[in-house]
Amino acid sequence: MSEDRSLARRVNCVVNGTAQAAEVSVRRTLADYLRQDLGLTGTHLGCEHGVCGACTVLVDGRAVRSCLMLAVQAEGCAVTTVEGIAPDVVTLHPLQTAFAKHHALQCGFCTPGMLTTLLEFLEEVPAPTAEEIRIVISGNLCRCTGYEPIVAATLEAAAVMRGGA
């Protein structure tokens, strides 16, 4: 039994508020578990070696690279992916709204990682400076935008979130 558990095991975690349980191979990355086992394909794999940041998700509220965690390590954790950011199917989160308004995404492949990274950050730093935002997204690569629209969107979203309900 213990030998079995060293090769595959059932993982229980809460993803975007929903309890999930699935049998996974121990070498499966958290990113592949989310994408392939749960069908949450919003989390993107851009490099699989921890540099590009596209796969960033929140694990117990902390932004982490899901390509650098094993699915089995998420046992008992609460995971938030990009699919869990908007409050409902109609409304977008203020950060998402600001991204659209400022053209902070073009191809959109890096966007999920940007959003999750910034969500954790804005929780901690509600009134950031542009320079603080640049530093916090320096671990998220984007080839399309030149980043400055993302900084502008984040500044605006922060203001909305501070003032909003």
Partner: peptide, 23 residues
């Protein structure tokens, strides 16, 4: 923490038979 070990695993530069997770 896996921030060096996991890239080495993903690139298969590290190929352990057993991984002992300290977390």
């Amino acid at each position: 923490g896996g921030q060096s070990m996991m890239p080495m695993l993903n690139m298969r530069f590290a190929q352990p038979d057993h991984l002992v997770d300290l977390n």
